[in-house]
Design a protein around this nucleic acid. Structure first.
Lengths: 202, 202
DNA sequence: CCACAACTTGCGCGACACGCACATAGTGCG
DNA sequence: CGCACTATGTGCGTGTCGCGCAAGTTGTGG
């Protein structure tokens, strides 16, 4: 329960994990969406300073390694929502949490474009989003006082939020786009997140 | 534009495609979620009555073959929505179209459970849903008179609909569930699809 | 200082995705 | 009816990949 004092082992582990993930994404971007097959596992491992075998100890596929940063970010959505003040309406809280989380560092356009335009990577990224829906649904349930076991609202809304983030990302990196990512995110999220669950006015 | 008179070639192609897909799903279900690695490509091909090489001419991965039926079904959502009467409000039209499409034959619980509880298959299935979002978004845009190029509403709603279908499926095959799939679908969809786009009352 | 656990690495195996060339079956024209 | 033509199925070879196994190496705790 206490991650504040990770021992040397844990920190090294996390460091190599990030090194591999970062190297994988960088090499993938270099080759472009059509050259993913040219990014050999051996190259990723070498760029990260580990052996090919170690790479496989951390990730079981290229897609998983390349999309790891997205998975980590998506996994923080639930926690970000819980950090919002309790009195805030659901829609405002969700929008604020997501916008904050996804614009802290301006996202890497090349990385997003790479992932969204490569079928294999897209599947993995979608899986990462789906993984994050559980915690997000619980956070929504906690905020709205609904029971995630009996009520569909939390899970459906969580999935819709993830979907809206995806669509916003796609729209953001469209060629002719001029709006900021934050603005698009707000617009997309406001389409699907109500101020309160149905059947519970105000 | 005319698929009513497919020549012999096209029909044979479709037949073998379905044979492979069907065999793949059946074998996967037999082995269960934890034995996906035991389903060899050679087994699938043999069960479908073709060679391993031919299998690879139709699908480039096991996941793709196993999830093909879901992909085909999801691809029909847009067309199903367009088939609804033009005067119907968006929410009713979407719910009716989806319920009809997803309960015509009662879905195979074993197949859904297999896909949803196997990470690799889940990614592929999610990708299939995502592929269907484009046509669905266009159908929604056509029905609501919005411009999919400028307005986020169609794309976001389409993605939310796909997400709701996913959540409904997950809820439906939960152990203690007693409700019908149609009822769960209605509940999930009503959480995310409004009667009309925002800013355009009635 | 030493035993123990965690992590990394090299090796080898089975499987897979795919390019290539050839065989076969459906199609259209004279 | 027969003949070129194209689409599809198949066998084979190649380069990776994912992972089990058994060391070697590094951090941890008594």
């Amino acid at each position: 329960m206490n991650d504040d004092a990770p021992d040397l082992r844990a920190r090294n582990k996390q460091a190599t994990r990030e090194a591999i993930s970062h190297a994988a994404l960088r090499l993938a971007i270099e080759q472009g969406p059509h050259g993913l097959a040219l990014v050999r596992v051996h190259d990723i491992a070498t760029a990260a300073g580990v052996s090919s075998r170690t790479y496989n100890n951390y990730f079981s596929s290229r897609a998983e390694a390349i999309c790891a940063f997205q998975a980590d970010q998506a996994a923080r959505v639930g926690q970000a929502l819980r950090a919002r003040p309790a009195g805030e309406p659901l829609d405002q809280a969700v929008i604020a949490a997501v916008v904050e989380l996804y614009t802290d560092p301006e996202p890497d356009k090349a990385g997003l474009r790479m992932i969204m335009s490569t079928p294999e990577l897209e599947g993995e990224a979608l899986r990462a989003f789906t993984m994050a829906e559980g915690p997000l649904a619980e956070a929504i349930a906690a905020r709205t006082g609904t029971d995630p076991e009996r009520d569909l609202f939390p899970a459906v809304t969580a999935a819709a939020v993830a979907a809206a983030i995806r669509v916003a990302g796609r729209r953001w990196l469209e060629p002719g786009n001029t709006e900021s990512f934050a603005a698009i995110l707000r617009g997309a999220l406001s389409c699907v997140v109500p101020a309160a669950p149905p059947g519970r006015p105000s």
